[in-house]
């Protein structure tokens, strides 16, 4: 089961990978980057260009976060 959020987060970055993020004022430390992919569509309306990361955190939760322009968002949480 997954849940969708689309909420803003802040991300710490190191050595070309995301290190940790803060969501709803709680810090989540990233223990592994499971997947990374790029989406670039809808350029004929308002372009969607995103870098996605599926990450595992220290609370054993799996999260999908993405960067769009200069902002980061949490897209979904895997239960």
């Amino acid at each position: 089961m997954t849940r969708l959020y689309f909420e803003p987060i802040t991300v710490t970055w190191q050595d070309g990978r995301p290190l940790a993020f803060t969501w709803r004022s709680r810090a989540h430390r990233i223990t592994a980057v499971l997947k990374h992919w790029v989406v670039r569509v809808d350029w004929w309306r308002q372009e969607i260009a995103r870098q996605y990361y599926k990450v595992q955190c220290d609370n054993l939760g799996t999260y999908e976060i993405y960067q769009e322009r200069d902002s980061w968002f949490l897209e979904r949480l895997y239960d």
């Binding site: 991300v11 710490t12 970055w13 200069d70």
Partner: peptide, 12 residues
């Protein structure tokens, strides 16, 4: 406003 701290490589 996201604080993207770049250390080493910066995000794409």
């Amino acid at each position: 406003s996201p604080d993207v701290v770049a250390e080493g490589f910066s995000p794409p």
